[in-house]
Design a protein around this nucleic acid. Sequence first.
RNA 1: CGCGGAGUAGAGCAGCUGGCAGCUCGUCGGGCUCAUAACCCGAAGGUCGGAGGUUCAAAUCCUCCCUCCGCAACCA
Length: 640
Amino acid sequence: MSDKQTFYITTPIYYPSDNPHIGHAYTTVAADTMTRYMKMRGFDTYFLTGTDEHGQKIQRRAAEAGKTPIEFIDPIIANFQALWKTLGIEYDDFIRTTEERHKKVAQDLFQQIYEQGDIYKSEYEGWYCTSCETFFTELQLAEGHTCPDCGKPVETMKEESYFFKMSKYADRWLQFITDNPDFIRPESRRNEMINFVKQGLDDLCVSRTTFDWGIPVPFDPKHVIYVWFDALINYISALKGTGDGTLFDKYWPADVHLVGKDIIRFHTIIWPIMLMALDIPLPKCVLGHGWVLIDSDKMSKSKGNVIDPNRLCEKYGVEAVRYFLMREMGYGQDCNYTEDLLALRINNDLANDYGNLLSRTTGMIDKFQQGIVLAPGKGTEADAELLALLGSMPEKFAALMDGMQWSNALAELWTLVNKANKYIEDAAPWALNKEGKTEELATVLYNLVEIIRLVTIMVSPVMPTIPAKVWQQLGIANQSELCGWEALTWGLFPANAKINRGEPLFPRIDLEAMVAEEPKPAPAPAAAKIAALTPECQMADFAKIDLRVVKVLDCHKVEKADKLLQFRLQLGEEERTVVSGIAKFYQPEELVGKHLILIANLQPAVIRGIESNGMLLSAEYDGKLQLLEAPDMPSGAKIV
RNA sequence: CGCGGAGUAGAGCAGCUGGCAGCUCGUCGGGCUCAUAACCCGAAGGUCGGAGGUUCAAAUCCUCCCUCCGCAACCA
């Protein structure tokens, strides 16, 4: 048994309803980089990723494709795994929630919480979006009974369900967050979550009966476990359900759950409370990172701007793609992707600065010293200054990496690369050579080799295949004692080593040629923008709805609500108050006097404390909205 | 006055435990010749969102305001 300190890191388990994109790639590369770094620092690491395979959405997608869920997802999961291989991801385990080892643990834990009374049976009625796997109250729905998040139609559902007593743990959660200020990172997310919980937690509905693609509730098999409840358990089931279960004792609690900002709530509220209920120690940190935006826009299938990482790796190389992702994404922030930005990073940072540093250094050693790295002399003041920076770099770099500030760590490291390039200019080895100052020349070239060696060690977690190429060129291949974290000291490079100058590490990209061949992302098909048709209904159904022309007597914004307008309407002799969520589209004053169409016999609803008697008709398309008018008909006229 | 984050050179960002306003890219001029048309130096370009205040000194601390973003609320 090793007595090394352990480091357990996870990515979310990805939902295989579609193929992996660059956002998945970012999270997974980050986890891989962190794992390699911690391993280099001497930790006993464990890196888990996988797929979350249950839920109504996958069941439905599979049915549409005429396949069973497993037939549907297997090829997609193969694509995930193939991409991780391409990207050089070295995970220790890949868990699928359809595996027996996961199901068993998930069921055991569900049972345990039930037996201690924190899961109870009740009834749930509400509107459900299958796409988002989320229930909404009637009031939460968007116009036309659509999902407020994704805009797709929702379905009504009434279920006998099991509920998890989240509310019971709210105070304990707040105490935990107070005691562990680094649990949720970055801090802005932490504040957000605290704020959310302080407004009160509802019990969570954790079972479904309306479909069966999930893990059965052990004591009531007509229910399946809610997918999120099921999915979060993977972080534990992958350890407990494997081999003799000792992995759990060794690696739990997790050191880092790496997640996108969209699923922070599940990981920082629901998951910790599940663990509290189970009396299992909580993970040490949940890091919510930003999104990879495509040309400053959110990536989505309907926008047709999804980036396939495979294509980028093929075109620019895996190492460059990894470097770009880790360098461009600031701590907790979104980053922007365009092909130009990627190419600029490659040309500037990798080709011009780092790759070219190796190239010019080996070039001079070849030309001035017949390919031999000679022992350094005593050195000048400029040398000392450079070596001071070199000496302080590992500590600075480590501090940033430990804090998972990968972009800043790389930026810091590159100050050394830039300093080295300037050092060459100042020292002018070609002049030293001409003047026959062989000792000074040997010192400069030796220092450069050492800088390259140390930078290469530090950059290896991000670009793991680069070091071997550099060691080959420097003539120290297979000398592992020179290539690890403990070798980050100036002066270890063996004098009189023979170098092997080779091909450029990172070829420059011809930006102009690139522009010419770049295919523009296909625009989304127009048909996709039209909302799905509601199922057929009877004439009798339509006849129940009484539509009338109404005149707007008065209209103003509802206070403390940015979407709401309050109307006073004339319907024949009668006056009505109606609230409508169209403040984003109309100024109140421009509507006064208009003749609009109202659903006049709709059951009243209270919105923001105002009773609304009816609903104004409007048409919606592509983010725009227009009220229907009947300018020449009097108030009270019936629509037939 | 719901909570939080942000507003700094043409673009993207750092600085924000108060002490001459910085980095990368881009633009312009120069240098070098070891190197991947690379590298190095210099210049132009900012009233650090606005207005007050504290201080010998404010991008940095305090107050108010404006704008953008996230979360919440809201969507008959």
